[in-house]
């Protein structure tokens, strides 16, 4: 009887400890990672909104007559940003536009960026547009408008990142013909994935009046455009901006 009482007490203590350890284990294994993931997604959502706002701000800036005298300022969430060149866009007559990106990282394995006037997101090796680059098609005229960042910036902060954009100039190329092609060359396959969808989206948004034959290899993706109207004009507008990070200009 006395021996049983002692054993029961020991078992109770061990069981109590086991329950506490189990609860702590479940919390550490399930709740903590879920909370961390939720916080990371919230940060990504904030960065995505900030980047989309930046695209709209740049678009508005490039359309005003006094753009050259104006610098606009905005802020991005904590992390790192850098400007980089992801590849080039080449027209049929040889005009090339660098496909620059303002890339934000610091959200685990996820990166976000502004490129070609759209906002992309990359998780590991997979990338998708959160906001498509601006293309338009009207009566035989397909237009692309691509912001290009001309200044190299690399900046990191554990607080927010102040950014300034100064409009510099616009370059423009126009080509007319029955078959017009655009080529994007890049060493990164996810960039080619993104551009494959840009070309497909341009056709889709033209509601059947524009057609494209899209081909792809390991280094480039090419679209050969034709239009129901017969002759087609493709214009590529390159809007150049200088970027300043950290409040310096």
């Amino acid at each position: 009887m006395e021996k049983d009482s002692g054993t029961a007490a020991a078992v109770a203590v061990i069981m109590l400890l086991a329950v506490i350890m189990l609860a702590a284990g479940v919390w550490a294994a399930v709740v903590l990672p879920a909370e961390a993931e939720e916080a990371r997604e919230a940060e990504i959502a904030q960065a995505k909104t900030a980047l989309e706002d930046t695209v709209f701000l740049l678009d508005a800036l490039s359309n005003v007559s006094f753009a050259a005298e104006t610098t606009v300022f905005t802020a991005l969430p904590a992390g790192t940003i850098q400007t980089e060149t992801l590849g080039i866009l080449k027209t049929g007559n040889g005009y090339t536009v660098p496909l620059t990106s303002l890339t934000c990282s610091g959200f685990g394995g996820t990166e976000l960026g502004i490129s070609a006037g759209g906002v992309w997101r990359k998780d590991g090796g997979d990338a998708a547009w959160n906001l498509f680059p601006k293309t338009s098609y009207e009566t035989g005229h397909l237009a692309f408008s691509l912001p290009v960042f001309t200044r190299n910036v690399a900046y990191g902060s554990s607080e927010m990142i102040p950014l300034g954009f100064q409009y510099l100039s616009t370059g423009r190329c126009e080509e007319t013909g029955e078959y017009l092609f655009l080529t994007v060359a890049s060493s990164e396959s996810w960039v080619l994935d993104l551009w494959e969808t840009v070309f497909a989206e341009a056709v889709f948004s033209a509601e059947g009046r524009l057609h494209a034959e899209i081909s792809r290899n390991s280094e480039s993706v090419q679209a050969v455009f034709t239009a129901d109207a017969g002759m087609l004009t493709v214009s590529v507008e390159e809007k150049r901006y200088a970027v300043f990070a950290g409040g310096k200009s």
């Binding site: 909104t49 900030a50 706002d53 930046t54 709209f56 701000l57 508005a60 606009v72 905005t74 802020a75 927010m160």
Partner: peptide
């Protein structure tokens, strides 16, 4: 900052 950017836009 986003409100300011939007007002600027």
């Amino acid at each position: 900052s986003q409100m300011k950017s939007d007002m600027d836009t």
